[in-house]
Write a protein that binds this DNA or RNA. Sequence first.
DNA 1: TATTGTTATACTCTATAACTATA
DNA 2: TATAGTTATAGAGTATAACAATA
Lengths: 151, 151
Amino acid sequence: MSSTDGPGPELSRRLGYLLKHAQLRMAEQTAKALTPYGIDGRELAVLLVLADREPASQQQAAQRLDIDRTTMVALLDALEGKGLLSRHPHADDRRRNVVELTDAGHDILRRAARASDDAEREFLAPLSPRAAQQLRDSLQTIVTRPGGQSS
Amino acid sequence: MSSTDGPGPELSRRLGYLLKHAQLRMAEQTAKALTPYGIDGRELAVLLVLADREPASQQQAAQRLDIDRTTMVALLDALEGKGLLSRHPHADDRRRNVVELTDAGHDILRRAARASDDAEREFLAPLSPRAAQQLRDSLQTIVTRPGGQSS
DNA sequence: TATTGTTATACTCTATAACTATA
DNA sequence: TATAGTTATAGAGTATAACAATA
């Protein structure tokens, strides 16, 4: 299973290649870690955003996740179907849906987040603690800064 | 344009989130850099693999890129349509297609790779040179090592 | 019978447009 | 008229199955 494996250094040393494959591997490990809890990475992200501060509407939650409001509908449908959250119309503006985690939702979130943390640690295992922290910091810097939008 | 922006620290500090968004940003900048050359990042990857050492078949090239052979067909169709490569049956085994870069293909590859390098540098601009090199090394370590497949 | 390239098909993810109900 | 949620639809991207040519 390894005769013509590698893509060659010209490609495999490129930053785009490294980032893509690192992300793929992290996503795989996270998915595996979350399987026992019946949710995937995107659903965990939704739960995290909802738990952080209860958004006043589905649309607000969608904005924070940078996904379309139509995508959010199916995502919430699935999580509601699993009994992890509930929707009810906002008191002041009945067009909006207030989304709330159920007790089961809070419980799954807590345990799934822990499993996800473990997956992160496993992912970073080949690095020294200092290098791992450096990686985190550098990624955060790059993602946070506007970067290439300047001129 | 920044009232309800961020997803909140619980999500935005997670490694999965950081990797995904870093990758998205890198892909964006690469796409922008490659626009003048009429190819996208995946097509540049194909050209790089083909130029590295000419593969004896489409299938070999597909394996190196870790994509399906059926996906490779459409990819090569596009690049052939742009005049960047040519296909002809292998002399010894006429089931196989030998894929070769044309002169135009080599030329575009050279210039597109340079533009891609520039995009990488711009992407890493918010980091110190040492941190940038560290990031590269750490990603390479993680992608190269088997990582989470052990137990 | 097995393999290479190809085509047809389906499935996932996501975005756009249109519909409803509220405002 | 404008907005929140929803639905229907369509577009990428990719994988599976089936087919033709060749071995």
